[in-house]
Design a protein around this nucleic acid. Structure first.
Ligand SMILES: [Mn+2]
Ligand SMILES: [Mn+2]
Ligand SMILES: [Zn+2]
Ligand SMILES: [Zn+2]
Lengths: 141, 141
DNA sequence: ATTTATTTTAGAATTATTCTAAAATACTTG
DNA sequence: CAAGTATTTTAGAATAATTCTAAAATAAAT
């Protein structure tokens, strides 16, 4: 059952992504990278990713889920978003952008950076440099 | 040792604040309110407040620290700020404003609302309303 | 004063996340 | 390829912030 090599291309793209992030291409990492990066931008928690992995028939430990998410984050191919107490979201969209956060549903929605103008930033305190600007607009029904 | 009634005034102000927030004025609540509101705007964690209380000779349980912070928050006299995984900050400044967050030090610094112009907010998804706009500027040395 | 409703508390429970150290796997070298 | 070495994965325990439980203490109402 060939497909003209389309799957091989996706596979190669994932492998290249990990390689160029300085990460070894192990089976669990490649599989999780497929779930994370294979279907457009996503915002996902560790537990949700673990469920998805199990649902996909993969047997990957919880520790590996956390290790992998943290490694991807440190390697710069995932962004960590802090919107609620006690649980991190990981964002496959690493471009500069902001978020709507739907309270109760626990859902994040991207806002393009230029949809908000964060003008005239106050100057940072002496001796510090800006490592990120996070805008979260909280929503309810 | 009189002081012209200045302490009584502060005490009365605290009591009035709790009353008008619909909260009973119990001894632990009044004592914590003094620590929280008696020395200008602050950003503090539950654990830090507990330490301060002990240092001030108060014996207040951990559960009461959490209960009180949550009640003050629900009553609208404290704001809860989510900047790092696994730990909440409570902010005695409940006006609309934003924050610098100094990573590593765990310190929050207020930014007046009009020091940043969050213009042309994108319209919220159909059926939702905005309950808050949080801007966090992360800093490092 | 008595009664009733609320609050405080010690300690246990919960939950996301990290740690540990041993087994498995990936990469390198001969 | 065959060892050897470095990295990764894993089960399960540990950690840490927060919440829960249910009983004792306190506050408000009668
Ligand atoms: Mn991280
Ligand atoms: Mn709360
Ligand atoms: Zn996003
Ligand atoms: Zn503040």
């Amino acid at each position: 059952m060939r497909d003209g090599g389309r799957n091989d291309e996706r596979q190669a793209a994932i492998v290249a992504k990990l390689k160029s992030a300085g990460l070894r291409t192990t089976r669990p990492r490649v599989a999780l990278a497929h779930l994370l990066f294979g279907q457009g931008d996503r915002h996902i928690t560790a537990e949700a990713l673990h469920s998805e992995a199990r649902a996909a028939g993969l047997s990957i430990s919880q520790a590996t889920i956390y290790n992998t998410l943290n490694q991807f984050h440190e390697a710069g191919i995932l962004r960590e978003v802090q919107v609620e107490k006690a649980r991190s979201y990981f964002d496959t969209n690493i471009s500069d952008h902001h978020h709507f956060y739907v309270e109760g549903e626990g859902r994040l929605i991207d806002i393009e950076q230029n949809a908000i103008s964060v003008d005239k930033l106050p100057s940072s305190p002496e001796g510090f440099r800006v490592t990120g600007v996070d805008v979260v607009i909280r929503l309810t029904k």
